[in-house]
């Protein structure tokens, strides 16, 4: 069974362009790169896939479940448990430490994850030594690792990454991509990277190109 499957997705902004997305699906243990220059609706697509926004037309199925059939708290909970999202620039709860920030993921999705599991995750991403630091004291590369740790801590079956590397230099970008891939394999999940970063082009075989669509 495909972890994520989209059919005939369209989104129309109330005062803006209509976006039509190609249908696709991703299996367990697979990687999919969604490429597009700015204005092609990359972020909108990612939000549709994560259930943060409802499509105007078409549907998204995650683990066989139609996202549009869920709403409110049930959708928030489903997303928290099944989908890990890594954003372009990492946002954290400024007042909390690194470890408390990644523990927010299991807390808000009602998952049982122990503190030692969280520490193991930080260890895997090589940032265990920073666990009691405030996130604002970390470098951009380190912050991105924390964001990945947070996205993965719930063992999601779908990992969505929105421009995870575009803010990073070559070395860090490579690191982050490798980490995402390793962890995806470790979790048997599907990894979807939405980006305009051409450095990733040659790294991932399966890819979809979005083209600017005008209505």
């Amino acid at each position: 069974m495909a972890i994520i499957q989209t059919t005939n997705l369209q989104y129309t902004f109330s005062k803006g362009p209509q976006l039509i997305f190609p249908s696709f699906q991703a299996e367990e243990n697979s990687e999919l790169l969604i490429l597009g220059s700015s204005g092609t609706g990359k972020t909108t697509l990612l939000h549709l896939l994560a259930g943060l926004r409802k499509p105007t037309v078409g549907e998204v199925k995650v683990n066989g479940l139609l996202l549009s059939s869920l709403s409110g708290a049930a959708l928030d909970c489903f997303r928290g448990k099944n989908i890990g999202v890594v954003f372009q620039t990492s946002h954290f709860v400024q007042s909390l430490s690194v470890i408390d920030n990644i523990l927010l993921a299991p807390y808000f999705s009602n998952n049982k994850v122990s503190k030692s599991d969280a520490e193991k995750m930080l260890d895997r991403l090589n940032i265990l030594s920073k666990k009691n630091k405030k996130t604002s004291t970390l470098s951009v590369g380190e912050q991105q690792r924390v964001a990945i740790a947070r996205a993965l801590l719930n063992n999601p079956s779908l990992i969505l990454a929105d421009e995870p590397t575009s803010a990073l230099d070559d070395e860090n970008a490579k690191d982050v991509l490798n980490l995402l891939r390793e962890q995806t394999h470790a979790l048997n999940a599907a990894l979807l990277i939405v980006t305009h970063d051409n450095r990733l082009k040659d790294e991932v075989k399966q890819r979809i190109e979005l083209t600017a669509l005008k209505s």
Partner: peptide, 18 residues
């Protein structure tokens, strides 16, 4: 200042009421 923080909490599964 913290709207992103709050949005992230929602993507992590946080409910509106929380």
């Amino acid at each position: 200042e913290r709207q992103y923080e709050l949005a992230i909490l929602r993507t992590l599964g946080g409910r509106r009421i929380q």
